[in-house]
Design a protein around this nucleic acid. Structure first.
Length: 468
RNA sequence: GUCCCCUUCGUCUAGUGGCCUAGGACGCUGGCCUCUCACGCCGGAAACAGGGGUUCGACUCCCCUAGGGGAUACCA
């Protein structure tokens, strides 16, 4: 039997971090078992579903690199099939029509709350009532008959055996009065039709599993394996929601987080493989299993994400990363890029990446390579360059450097050191002024590396412009 | 209220009865390296929610309490 998993987002917003992880786990599980991972859009509630949200979710998923198999399923298109199943259940006597008014329902709900004896509230008043009693002009809903006694145990692959007494399960609605299916019916029918073998989803669905379990039984279908993974909480420990900092994955993309970082980070939230922290996607596919999924909720930690990102930034392909940086720079800046921007960036990017945690930081620090002189100076650099003694050093250096025949780090290094030695200066007192003049900043990659990447002409030009 | 789930350093976690005077990672922190900032390296502080059992022996098993979370719709 081939494994079939599915990710079933409801298109009422963007793809947030929790959904992204659910998708990742489903994807990983399917890939690990050589099975299928399919996407199903739960748009049963047409009023709340928007095309925009659907697009955003697809974008998020593809940014994450979670490719799906087969055609995307839109749940709303199966409404006919759902209604058929409900009709069958009705004729089998496993479901019935309920003509209760909203007022009656509210009343029952309040009463149940007062008694405080069970989680269910519907009092089954139409369960065995003669259909002839049906009030005229009322469109009924269809309710499924749940067992009246005994209990139900779900053997969850993550949570273990979870048992619930059946009297806490009431006859829930499977078909609305307008004939459309509720979520509870739709998932069961669709999961069955698409032959899902493993339902991996958020912990918040654990309670639903009990209801769905009986729906499967009423239909005479096999119940899939369930795996309810703990939720990701916000910094305050509450379920992630739009109010609790659950940002869309696109937000992290904009911040300059790499998809591979996100995959690794999300994987480690709730799943572990000994002490391993940085886990490539290939390894993740090889190692992933449901046994190692923890049962307690995790909190989102930006520092960890950033730390992981700096790791993947260093592993990123330099020329590909350069392209990305160039794209962003062009979009953000009104200044024209230097003719040599691409070449310099590719030469200097490894030094830049060494000091960055996000793509955006790489973009910011790459300014020294992207534009030709004159450059702009930050306060620290201006302050340093204002000193006449420093000015002297820079023009001395400009002269010495212009006389060099070789232009590599070693040559530059020894020339500058020699100058520092003869003037009895510590290297820092020479290197910092150079840094200020060459980069416009007090922080940069190694100064000799900068000179090499910039090349002789641009280096000399910058020195000349600042030593006037 | 009721039902369900959870509880190891601040955070993510290792740990499946003796290997634990509880390990790793992020963060914090002392130092080294050093042309700045990073990186890297060496060190430090930091946790088994509480109480009962079971056992020769509990972080690990059971019970209770507390705390946290989730679910309680003709939403998904």
């Amino acid at each position: 039997m081939t494994v079939v998993t599915r990710f079933a987002p409801s298109p009422t917003g963007y793809l947030h971090i929790g959904g992204a992880r659910t998708a990742l786990f489903n994807w990983l599980f399917a890939r690990h078992h050589g099975g299928k991972y399919v996407l199903r859009v739960e748009d049963t509630d047409q009023k709340r579903s928007t095309q925009d949200a659907i697009d955003k979710i697809f974008e998020g998923l593809s940014w994450l690199g979670l490719d799906h198999d087969e055609e995307v399923i839109f749940q709303s298109q199966n409404a006919g099939r759902h209604a058929e199943v409900a009709a069958q259940l009705l004729s089998d006597g496993k479901a019935y029509k309920c003509y209760c008014s909203p007022e009656e329902l509210t009343e029952m709900r309040e009463k149940a709350r007062e008694n405080g004896t069970s989680g269910s509230f519907y009092d089954n008043r139409w369960r065995d009532r003669d259909p002839a009693d049906a009030p005229a002009g009322v469109d009924p809903v269809v309710r499924i008959k749940m067992p009246l006694d005994g209990d139900t145990t779900i053997s969850d692959l993550v949570q273990g055996d979870v048992t619930r007494t059946n009297d806490t399960l009431d006859d829930f609605v499977i078909l609305r009065s307008d004939g459309t299916p509720t979520y509870m019916l739709a998932v069961v029918v669709d999961d069955h039709d698409m032959k899902a073998t493993h339902v991996i989803r958020g912990d918040d669905h654990l309670n639903n599993a009990f209801r769905q379990f009986h729906l499967y039984q009423a239909c005479g279908w096999d119940v899939p394996e369930f795996a309810h993974i703990p939720l990701i909480h916000g910094a305050d420990g509450a379920k992630m929601s739009k109010r609790h900092g659950a940002l869309g994955v696109d937000h992290y993309a904009d911040l300059g987080i790499l998809p591979e970082t996100m995959r690794n980070y999300l994987l480690r939230l709730g799943w572990s493989h000994g002490d391993d922290e940085t886990i490539s996607t290939e390894q993740a596919i090889e190692w992933f299993n449901l046994d190692a999924v923890g049962r307690s909720p995790a909190r989102f930690d930006m520092d960890r994400l950033l730390n992981l990102n700096s790791h993947y930034l260093k592993e990123a392909d330099p020329s590909q990363l350069s392209e990305t940086v160039l794209d962003i720079a062009v979009r953000n800046s009104e200044k024209p890029l230097s003719e040599n921007a691409r070449q310099r960036l590719e030469g200097g990017i490894s030094g830049l990446v060494q000091r960055a945690k996000t793509v955006i930081e790489v973009v910011d620090s790459s300014n020294l390579y992207l534009y030709d002189a004159p450059l702009s100076f930050n306060d620290k650099a201006k302050e340093l360059l204002a000193d006449s003694e420093i000015q002297k050093r820079i023009s001395d250096l400009a002269e010495i450097l212009s006389g060099l025949t070789l232009w590599d780090e070693n040559t530059l290094d020894s020339a500058v050191r020699a100058y520092a030695d003869t003037n009895e200066l510590k290297l820092g007192l020479v290197a910092q002024p150079l840094r200020a003049a060459l980069t416009g900043s007090n922080v940069s990659p190694g100064i000799f590396e900068v000179m090499v990447v910039l090349g002789r002409d641009e280096t000399l030009e910058r020195l000349k412009l600042t030593s006037l």
